[in-house]
Amino acid sequence: MRFRDVARVTAYAGDLVSQLGPSFTFQKRETRHPGLDGARGLAVLAMVVGHTLDALLAPAVRAHPWVQTYWTFRGITAPLFLLVSGWAVVAALGSRPTAARDTYGKRLRRALLLIFLGYLVHWPGWSAVRHMGWTEKMLTTVLTFDALQCIGFALLFGATLLALAPVRWGRTVVLVALAVALPLVSSTMWSLGEGLPGPLRQFIGSGGTSRFPFFPWASYFFAGALAAHLLNVLRPGWTQGLALVVLGGGLIWVMRGQEADWGPSSAWLVAYRVGQGLLVLGIVNLLPQRVSGTLAPLGRLSLWIYVLHLPIVYGWASYSGLSSRVGPTLGLLPALSIGVGLLLGCALVARIGSWIRDQARPWRTGSTTLQASVGSLGSRGG
Rank of each mutant, 00 (worst) to 15 (best):
F3K: 13
S18C: 07
S18D: 14
S18Y: 04
P22E: 11
T25L: 05
T31Q: 14
T31I: 10
T31K: 12
T31A: 14
R32C: 03
R32T: 11
G35N: 01
G38M: 05
A39T: 06
R40L: 09
V48G: 02
G50R: 05
D54R: 10
A58R: 09
A58C: 09
P59R: 10
V61P: 06
W66Y: 13
V67T: 13
Q68C: 07
Y70T: 11
F73D: 04
P79Q: 06
P79F: 06
P79L: 10
L82S: 09
L83F: 15
W87Q: 06
L93E: 08
L93M: 15
G94F: 09
R96A: 15
T98D: 15
A99W: 03
Y104I: 15
K106L: 14
R107E: 14
R110N: 13
L113P: 00
L114Y: 04
F116K: 03
Y119D: 04
L120Q: 09
W123E: 12
P124H: 10
P124D: 11
A128I: 07
M132S: 11
G133I: 08
T135M: 08
T135R: 08
E136K: 00
K137G: 13
A147S: 09
Q149N: 10
Q149F: 00
F153C: 05
A154C: 04
A154K: 00
A154H: 02
L156F: 09
G158S: 03
L161S: 02
L161Q: 01
V167F: 04
V167L: 13
R171T: 07
T172V: 09
V176S: 07
A177G: 10
A179W: 01
L182Q: 05
V185H: 01
S191M: 14
G193F: 07
P197N: 10
P197M: 12
P199F: 12
R201N: 05
Q202M: 12
G205L: 08
S210A: 15
F215H: 06
P216A: 09
Y220L: 10
F221K: 02
A223N: 00
A228C: 08
L230D: 05
L231R: 06
L231H: 03
V233E: 08
P236M: 12
T239I: 06
T239Y: 09
L247T: 14
G249Q: 07
W262C: 07
S265A: 15
S265V: 04
Y272A: 07
V274S: 01
Q276L: 12
L279A: 08
L281E: 00
G282D: 02
V284Q: 00
L286K: 04
Q289F: 06
R290P: 00
V291W: 12
L308G: 02
L308V: 05
H309W: 05
L310F: 07
I312C: 01
A317H: 06
A317Q: 09
Y319N: 08
G321S: 05
G321D: 04
S323R: 12
R325M: 11
G327P: 06
L333A: 14
L333P: 01
S337N: 05
V340C: 07
L342T: 02
L342P: 00
L343V: 08
I352A: 11
I356D: 03
R357P: 01
T368H: 10
T369E: 15
A372M: 13
V374D: 04
S376E: 15
S376Q: 14
L377P: 02
S379V: 14
